[in-house]
Design a binder for these strands. Structure first.
Lengths: 345, 345
DNA sequence: TCCCTAAGTGGTAACGGTTACACTTTTGTA
DNA sequence: TACAAAAGTGTAACCGTTACCACTTAGGGA
C-alpha cells in the first residue's frame, strides 16, 4: 500500500523539472530533447507513475469524462446503447460515468447535479421529460448535452440524435394495412415523450393515407415502467371489436405485452398480427419470431459520442445538430394477412 | 456559459471565510453557528454552488467513484448486474465509471490503468482471467477490488462475490438425472475461468453420485464471445449417440445455442431436455419456456457494492471476504422425462 | 473576579498537476 | 562573425478544496 509517485518524484529521479515531465506527458505542449524524453519515460516506467486525473482536471477545469444518463440498464435497449457508448467513448480516450434515472424526474435532477460536480465535459442522455430548467442550467455551465432517442421540445438548443420515429411507425402501419388490416392497435410511450408522440403521429398518418379512420380506443399511451403493457393488451383484446393487428411502439413494454398475449387464447399471427419496436436478441427466438422495427443502436451511439466529444473539443460548428437515422423494418412471422379481411374494394 | 461559483465566491457573499463554508459542506468537521450555517446555505442556493469534485479529490487523495469492469453491457447478465450496481452505489452516494473489456485481456489492462489514474476508491470486476499482476498492482496502490461472478485463483487476497457454481450445476444435473437422462451434454465457459471450471465440477459430481460415467465428448468448454454455442450444439447433435439432455452453463452462449437448436429438427423437450444458466426476461417467452438456473443478480450487486464501499470507508474487517449466494433452480417446460429411458433398474 | 474550556471563526499550507514566462543554449542566416 | 530565432529547460503561480492551527469570544465553576 505504497503511495503513488507524483510528477515531482519523476522529475527528481530524472534530474529535470516538473515542467519537462509535464511536457513529456502532454506531447505537443512544448519542446523536449529526445534524450531527455527517453530518460523521463524510463523513470515513469520504473516508478509506475500515472498522472492523477483529479489534479489535471482541477487545473484544466474540464474532464475527459462524459456522463451517460439513461433510465435503466436492465432494459436491453439502453443496455446496448450504453455498451456502444462506452465502447465508442473509449476509442476516443474518454470514460463514461453511467447514471440511471428509473424514469424518475427527481433522480434525473440528482444525476444532473452529480454531473455538474464532476464537471464532465459532456452528457449523453435520454431525458425523462421534466427538468427543463435543470438541463438548461447544464448547458448554461458550458456542459455539452446530447439527447438521444428522445428529446424535449422546449430545449431547442440541445443536440439530438434519434431515429425517425414517425416514419418508422408509418412504415410498420403501412405494412399491416398492406396485409389487409383495418383495425390496428397501437401501444406507445407516454404522450409527454417525443417518441411516444411521434410514433403515434406516424401511425395516424399512415392510417389517414389509407383512408382509414383511427379508433382512439385503440391508441394507448402508457408509461415505460411498470406492467402496463399487459393491461393494455388485456383491454384491447377484450374489446367488443378487438383489433386484428397490434403495434407495440413502447420498447420497454414489449415483454409485458407479449406475456399477456401468451397467456391468452389469442394466436399470433392467426388472430392477431404483431409488430414491435426494437429488435432484441430474443425477438427471433420466440414463437413466432417477431416482426420488428430495428433501431440502429450503434448509429445512435456513434453519433451521440461524436457530438459529445466533438463539442467538448470545440471542433464542431456552433449551431445545434439534429441527427436522424433510419430504423429498419424487419419482417418475420408475427405479422400475416388479415383473416377474412374486407375485400379490397 | 458563466463559470461556476467557487467556495470563495460563497464565502465572500456570505461574509465568512472559506473554512466555514467548507465546514457547512462537510457536516461534522467542525462547529458552525446555526445562523451562520443558514446564511451560507442560502448563499449556496442562490449561487447554485456545487463543490468541484476534482478539487476535493485532489485534496483527499480518493474519490467517491468506483469502477465497474465488465465484459460487455450487451450481455443481459452484465447489464442487469451493472444496473443494480449503479443503483446500489447511488444509494450510498457514490458514482460508477463503467468500463467494458469485451473479454480482451489487453483492454482489461487498459481499464485498470484508467482506474488508477482516476484514483477510484474501489473496483468491482468480472476478471477475464489474465492480468494477475495488474490486479495485484491495483490493490498494492490501496484500491479495493471486488471480483464478482468470477475469480482468479492466484489472487487470494481479493474479495469475491459469486454464486455457488458447483452446487448450481449439480442441482441442474441431478434434475435431469432424476428425469431419467443418462447422456447429458454440458456446455460451459472457458476452462480458464472459475465459473467455467466450477460448473463442470458440479456436473461431474452429480453424475458420479448417480453412478453415471461422463463422456468427455459431451463436455464443451467454449469462449464467452463469438458464436461457438451454435457450433457446440451442432457437434453434440450430430454425434452417433447424441445426448438426450443438455445444460448450457455458459451464460453468454445460450442464445447462440438456442438458435442452432431452433434451426435443427430437434424438438425441445421431446428430443432434448434443456437447462440453461441464467434467467433472462425472455426465457419464459420462448417456446417452450426454459428451465433455468436463476442467478440472484441483485444479491451479487448488493454484496459487491457493500464490499466496495465498505472497504473504501475502512469499516470492514481486514481479512478477505468470500461471499457465496445460492442460485435458484426454476423448472419450466424445456426439461422433461427421457424418452424410452433405460428402465430404472 | 479570574481562569479554563469549548464554540465559533479565519488564515493558510497542502494536494498534484499545467502553463506562462524568463532564461540559457543551439542553430541558422546574412 | 554577429545576431536573431528557435529549442530546451526551470521557476513559480495557479486551479478549488480540505484540514491543521491559531485566534477570539462566551459561558461556567471555583
Amino acid at each position: 500500500m505504497k503511495k503513488p509517485a507524483t510528477i515531482r518524484d519523476v522529475a527528481r529521479e530524472a534530474g529535470v523539472s516538473v515542467a519537462v515531465v509535464s511536457r513529456v506527458l502532454n506531447e505537443g505542449t512544448g519542446p523536449v530533447a529526445p534524450t531527455t524524453r527517453a530518460k523521463v519515460l524510463e523513470v515513469i516506467e520504473d516508478l509506475g507513475y500515472r498522472p492523477r486525473a483529479a489534479a489535471r482536471e482541477l487545473q484544466q477545469r474540464t474532464t475527459s469524462t462524459i456522463g451517460l444518463v439513461v433510465a435503466d440498464l436492465a432494459n436491453p435497449f439502453f443496455a446496448r446503447l450504453a455498451d456502444r457508448v462506452v465502447w465508442e467513448a473509449r476509442a476516443r480516450g474518454v470514460h463514461v460515468v453511467v447514471l440511471t434515472t428509473q424514469e424518475d424526474p427527481h433522480l434525473e435532477a440528482e444525476s444532473i447535479a452529480t454531473l455538474i460536480e464532476r464537471s464532465v465535459a459532456s452528457v449523453i442522455a435520454t431525458p425523462a421529460g421534466d427538468n427543463v430548467d435543470k438541463w438548461a442550467r447544464l448547458i448554461d455551465l458550458g456542459i455539452n448535452v446530447v439527447f438521444v432517442d428522445r428529446e424535449i421540445d422546449q430545449l431547442e438548443q440541445i443536440d439530438v440524435v434519434t431515429i425517425r420515429n414517425d416514419v418508422s411507425a408509418e412504415v410498420a402501419t403501412a405494412h399491416l394495412i398492406g396485409l389487409g388490416h383495418t383495425r390496428i392497435g397501437f401501444i406507445s410511450g407516454p404522450a409527454a415523450t417525443s417518441t411516444g408522440r411521434d410514433r403515434v403521429a406516424g401511425f395516424r398518418r399512415a392510417m389517414a393515407a389509407a383512408g382509414l379512420s383511427v379508433d382512439d380506443e385503440l391508441v394507448h399511451h402508457i408509461p415505460f415502467r411498470g406492467d402496463n403493457g399487459s393491461d393494455s393488451v388485456g383491454a384491447l383484446l377484450s374489446m367488443p371489436e378487438p383489433p386484428t393487428a397490434l403495434i407495440v411502439g413502447n420498447t420497454a413494454q414489449v415483454r409485458s405485452a407479449l406475456r399477456r398475449i401468451k397467456q391468452s387464447e389469442i394466436h399470433v399471427p392467426e388472430d392477431l398480427s404483431l409488430v414491435v419496436f426494437d429488435d432484441n436478441p430474443w425477438t427471433e427466438l420466440v414463437s413466432p419470431p417477431l416482426t420488428v422495427v430495428r433501431q440502429p443502436i450503434e448509429m445512435l451511439a456513434v453519433h451521440s459520442v461524436d457530438l459529445a466529444v466533438g463539442r467538448a473539443k470545440g471542433l464542431l460548428p456552433e449551431h445545434r445538430r439534429r441527427i436522424e437515422v433510419d430504423a429498419e423494418f424487419v419482417r418475420r412471422s408475427s405479422s400475416a394477412p388479415a383473416r377474412q379481411s374486407t375485400p379490397t374494394t
